[in-house]
């Protein structure tokens, strides 16, 4: 681990070039629909091309505890009604065809996650039983070469991520927590007390 960390310190601006970003927005409340319900929704999204990307297939991992749960596989990235760390949320992991600026990639993954969350919450089959928080997000980078989970990456990416969420959430009052395990992907957990609606956030995102 030390070796990776030392290597990371050499990477003066590398983290900015990383494109494998991810964003998770969390489901509100403690009671949620049966996870099996998300499978037909994702299949329908493929038919209707309901969310961005070349949508390919649905992967069911409900049997694995605290995992990606139910996934919508796309060429550019994967959507998931994710249960990592025991919390349900809509995640989007960008895998390829990223833009050449960190900020644009950041906007893309947050936008895709919010759009998918909005679509899931408003899907008729979910019947209003699911909503998403707008005061809590996880933003990370699945790239240990360019953005290992260390202080240098935080120095490079932390301010950009925070600035982005200040604009998105409309407040500077936010708590930013960094994953401590150097083995996990670099990720920051953002919490604020300001609430909004997913729709409002998506509108605001369009102006950024």
């Amino acid at each position: 681990m030390l070796r990776s960390y030392e290597y990371g310190l050499l990477m003066s601006t590398a983290a900015n070039t990383a494109t494998r970003l991810f964003c998770k927005c969390f489901a509100a409340g403690d009671v949620h629909p049966d996870d099996a319900l998300y499978i037909p929704v994702f299949h329908r999204w493929i038919q209707e091309k309901a969310v961005p990307g070349l949508l390919i297939d649905v992967a069911d991992y409900q049997h694995v505890p605290q995992g990606p749960n139910v996934m919508l596989i796309a060429h550019e990235g994967h959507y998931a009604m994710d249960r990592t760390a025991g919390r349900l949320g809509m995640a989007y992991h960008q895998k390829r065809d990223g833009a050449d600026s960190f900020e644009r990639n950041l906007k893309t993954v947050v936008s895709n996650a919010l759009q998918a969350a909005d679509a899931m919450a408003n899907d008729a089959s979910i019947d209003g039983a699911l909503s998403f928080r707008t005061d809590e997000f996880v933003l990370g980078v699945d790239d240990r070469l360019l953005a290992p989970n260390n202080a240098d990456t935080l120095d490079q990416l932390g301010p950009q991520i925070q600035a982005f969420f200040v604009k998105l959430l409309g407040t500077e009052a936010m708590e930013v927590q960094v994953a401590s395990d150097p083995r996990v992907p670099f990720q920051v957990h953002i919490r604020t007390e300001v609430t909004s609606t997913v729709g409002d956030l998506r509108e605001r995102l369009n102006t950024l």
Partner: peptide, 8 residues
């Protein structure tokens, strides 16, 4: 699994 696959 995290960087290239579906985390599984």
């Amino acid at each position: 699994a995290e960087e290239y696959s579906d985390r599984i």
